[in-house]
Lab assay of single mutants.
Amino acid sequence: GLPEGWEMRFTVDGIPYFVDHNRRTTTYIDPRTG
């Protein structure tokens, strides 16, 4: 799974992105792969 505090969501286009609730940021880069 994802690191603690992270969540995976999808855009309206079906593109996955990642929400970091710890820092309240979003990124398209998987936190597991950097």
Rank of each mutant, 00 (worst) to 15 (best):
G1K: 14
G1P: 15
G1Q: 14
G1V: 14
G1Y: 10
G1N: 12
G1D: 15
G1I: 12
G1A: 15
G1L: 14
G1E: 15
L2V: 03
L2K: 03
L2P: 04
L2Y: 03
L2E: 01
L2M: 09
L2N: 02
L2G: 03
L2T: 02
P3K: 04
P3S: 04
P3W: 06
P3Q: 04
P3R: 05
P3I: 04
P3F: 04
P3E: 03
P3L: 04
E4N: 12
E4D: 13
E4A: 15
E4R: 13
E4K: 13
E4F: 13
E4H: 13
E4S: 14
E4P: 14
E4Q: 13
E4T: 13
E4I: 12
E4W: 13
G5D: 02
G5H: 08
G5F: 07
G5V: 04
G5Q: 07
G5A: 07
G5R: 06
G5E: 03
W6L: 02
W6P: 00
W6Y: 06
W6R: 01
W6N: 00
W6F: 07
W6T: 00
W6K: 00
W6H: 00
W6Q: 01
W6E: 00
W6D: 00
E7H: 08
E7M: 08
E7Q: 10
E7T: 12
E7P: 01
E7W: 07
E7L: 07
E7R: 05
E7V: 12
M8R: 08
M8T: 03
M8K: 05
M8G: 01
M8H: 01
M8V: 07
M8N: 00
M8P: 01
M8E: 03
M8D: 00
R9T: 04
R9K: 11
R9W: 07
R9V: 06
R9I: 05
R9F: 11
R9D: 02
R9L: 10
R9M: 08
R9G: 04
F10E: 03
F10G: 01
F10Q: 05
F10I: 09
F10Y: 12
F10M: 10
F10T: 08
F10V: 08
F10A: 04
T11Y: 02
T11V: 01
T11Q: 06
T11H: 04
T11P: 01
T11R: 08
T11M: 02
T11N: 09
T11S: 09
T11W: 02
T11D: 15
V12L: 13
V12Q: 11
V12N: 12
V12R: 14
V12K: 15
V12D: 12
V12F: 14
V12M: 12
D13I: 06
D13R: 13
D13G: 12
D13V: 08
D13L: 12
D13T: 13
D13M: 11
G14R: 08
G14F: 04
G14L: 06
G14P: 00
G14V: 00
G14N: 09
G14Q: 06
G14A: 05
G14I: 00
G14W: 06
I15F: 08
I15E: 07
I15R: 13
I15P: 02
I15S: 06
I15V: 12
I15G: 02
I15K: 10
I15N: 07
I15H: 09
I15L: 09
P16T: 07
P16W: 06
P16A: 10
P16V: 12
P16H: 05
P16Y: 05
P16M: 11
P16D: 01
Y17D: 02
Y17W: 04
Y17R: 00
Y17H: 02
Y17P: 00
F18S: 00
F18Y: 10
F18E: 00
F18P: 00
F18M: 00
F18K: 00
F18W: 14
F18H: 00
F18N: 01
F18D: 01
V19L: 11
V19N: 00
V19G: 01
V19R: 05
V19Y: 15
V19E: 05
V19M: 09
V19K: 04
D20V: 05
D20Q: 07
D20S: 08
D20P: 04
D20R: 06
D20T: 06
D20I: 05
D20Y: 08
H21G: 07
H21K: 10
H21M: 10
H21P: 05
H21R: 10
H21N: 10
H21L: 10
H21I: 11
N22Y: 14
N22V: 15
N22S: 10
N22W: 10
N22E: 11
N22Q: 12
N22D: 09
N22A: 12
N22P: 08
N22T: 11
N22I: 15
N22R: 09
N22G: 09
N22H: 11
R23G: 14
R23P: 02
R23A: 14
R23S: 15
R23E: 13
R23L: 11
R23W: 08
R23Y: 09
R23Q: 13
R23D: 11
R23T: 15
R24W: 11
R24L: 10
R24V: 09
R24E: 13
R24M: 14
T25K: 14
T25W: 15
T25E: 14
T25G: 08
T25L: 15
T25H: 11
T25D: 06
T25Y: 15
T25M: 14
T26D: 06
T26H: 13
T26P: 02
T26F: 15
T26S: 12
T26K: 14
T26L: 14
T26A: 10
T26E: 13
T27F: 07
T27Y: 07
T27W: 07
T27G: 04
T27D: 02
T27N: 04
Y28Q: 07
Y28I: 07
Y28R: 08
Y28V: 07
Y28P: 07
I29L: 11
I29V: 10
I29P: 02
I29M: 09
I29T: 11
I29G: 05
I29Q: 12
I29R: 11
I29E: 11
D30R: 01
D30M: 00
D30P: 05
D30L: 01
D30E: 03
D30K: 01
P31D: 01
P31N: 02
P31I: 02
P31Q: 03
P31S: 01
P31T: 02
P31F: 02
P31K: 00
P31R: 01
R32V: 05
R32A: 05
R32S: 05
R32L: 03
R32P: 04
R32Y: 04
R32I: 04
R32E: 04
R32M: 03
R32D: 03
R32N: 04
T33G: 11
T33Y: 10
T33K: 09
T33H: 10
T33A: 11
T33I: 13
G34Q: 14
G34F: 15
G34I: 14
G34H: 13
G34M: 14
G34S: 14
G34K: 09
G34E: 12
G34P: 13
G34W: 15
G34N: 13
G34A: 14
